[in-house]
Design a protein around this nucleic acid. Structure first.
Length: 264
DNA sequence: ATGGCCATCGCGGATGGA
């Protein structure tokens, strides 16, 4: 089973690239972020023609998330129960596991999330990010108690540590790299999750996002802020995790690259 | 040193992203 996450920075602009990528990478589940469109504009038919079901939680202009899956996605939850939010940032569903362990339930709980950017430490948006992270953690604790096989993936807008940052000195204490954000990320992980990317040997300077400016991609000036976290029950099944830089080389690319996880 | 790009809305330039 393969799962992936991709911040597409406007699905309207990127749909051809997403369909092309799915053809080359026929994953079982793809979580999309930053759709920047409303549900009525979601191209469900295009995905259906490619053999995928979709669950969308859209919003005009900003945010918006979706789950694209081979198997039906059921028990869908939009945003974080218990945390009041007017932005479309989280979509959760249970999807059929094509290769379930014989003694386990046949479903995997998948959470696709677009974490707040936070703009700058000390700003109102940063305060919102901190509150959102606390809200997510409080709900995730319950969700993990109910679903042993759980994946939390998406655009976290937080680096784990300096390995995830192209210029840790120059970007020290800047957004995505602050101690407060990293503390919150560790607190999430402490609920019983694992950073699937670091379960495997990776090349140094592996990033998932590069600024559009300054030829940042060509110079590999990036950040690793897109993550796939696995519950303990799924950790032992993980056999690979990789960032696919190929779509970042397209014309008119998203600024993010997809991250792909393989479960045996 | 500053901002350098891209998407949206909408038709100029502000806002947000990261």
């Amino acid at each position: 089973m393969r799962l992936a996450t991709w911040n597409v920075n406007s699905l309207s602009v990127r749909l051809p690239q997403v369909l092309d990528w799915l053809q080359k990478n026929p994953v079982d589940v793809l979580a999309l972020q930053e759709l920047k469109l409303t549900d009525d504009k979601f191209p469900a038919e295009a995905f259906a023609a490619a053999g995928y079901q979709t669950q969308c939680f859209g919003q005009k202009t900003y945010n918006g998330v979706a789950l694209v899956s081979r198997a039906p996605a059921v028990a869908v939850v939009r945003n974080i129960p218990g945390f009041s939010d007017n932005m479309a940032r989280v979509i959760t569903a249970s999807v059929l596991d094509p290769a379930p362990a014989p003694d386990a339930t046949a479903e995997i709980r998948v959470i696709g999330a677009y974490f707040p950017n936070g703009q700058a430490p000390g700003s109102d948006k940063f305060e919102y990010k901190m509150a959102w992270l606390k809200g997510l953690r409080d709900w995730l604790r319950q969700e993990l108690a109910e679903h042993a096989k759980l994946v939390l993936m998406g655009d976290f807008n937080i680096t784990f540590d300096d390995q995830d940052v192209w210029d840790p000195v120059g970007l020290k204490d800047s957004i995505h790299c602050t101690d407060e954000e990293r503390y919150q990320l560790r607190a999430l992980v402490s609920l019983g999750l694992h950073d699937s990317f670091r379960l495997f040997e990776q090349s140094p300077k592996s990033y998932s996002w590069w600024d559009y400016r300054d030829m940042a991609f060509r110079r590999n000036r990036g950040l690793r802020i897109d993550h796939i976290l696995l519950s303990q029950a799924l950790k032992s099944r993980a056999s690979a995790c990789a960032i696919d830089k190929a779509p970042r080389k397209n014309e008119r690319p998203s600024d993010h690259a997809p991250v792909v996880l393989t479960l045996d």
